[in-house]
Design a protein around this nucleic acid. Sequence first.
DNA 1: CTTGTATATTATTATATATTAATATTATAA
DNA 2: TTATAATATTAATATATAATAATATACAAG
Lengths: 103, 103
Amino acid sequence: MKSQRNTTTSEMQNNCKNVAAILKAISHPQRLMILCHLEKGAKTVGELEKLCGGSQSSISQFLKLMKLEAMLTSEKRGLFVYYRIHDPKMKKLVLSLYKIFCK
Amino acid sequence: MKSQRNTTTSEMQNNCKNVAAILKAISHPQRLMILCHLEKGAKTVGELEKLCGGSQSSISQFLKLMKLEAMLTSEKRGLFVYYRIHDPKMKKLVLSLYKIFCK
DNA sequence: CTTGTATATTATTATATATTAATATTATAA
DNA sequence: TTATAATATTAATATATAATAATATACAAG
């Protein structure tokens, strides 16, 4: 196994750029809350609105942002749109954050 | 062990607020890079400047910010100021991020 | 075809952050 | 003392983000 200590500076810079962008996308109370709820399964926009306590517009915009970052996918069924976590790494991240900061 | 699924909404809101603030502080390529380098041990401002590739002023400002968030501590020795990670949770976070996103 | 509901989009404004330049502070050494 | 090196602070500006309101779209039911 290659240890972190062998990572070159340019690899590190690239990794940090990528990871910082991911963290930026979820470093907002409601966006993080959305992700935490989705970790338990798919939800509609309206459900997330009630669970996370934001306006319809802001929740929709947050979801769009996280979808653009390829964290989420959406599926339309009739009037409702179901969002779910697409990238398994994001699930891992949510669980790690919980373990580290919320026990 | 209490599972995450039993967390109440207001607990979740509070946790998300706190964790989002932490993530926000490190969701910047150079600040994350600083943290990654400090995970390996204390460094001076000048060392971090070279390692992370920012101006003297910006690195100093980043360090100040992360110190305010109680992530780092500093110690002056002569002309040099050594910064190190203060909160062990931040070390855990850096290692988790590495495991999830950088392998 | 019109009404109601869920979601998305757009535009606007306020606020926060990033970046840079310039200057200040502190300690050391000549 | 004066000079120099390391770090910190301040100020200015540009850019990004957050929050909100208003409007638009898409679908379903009647």
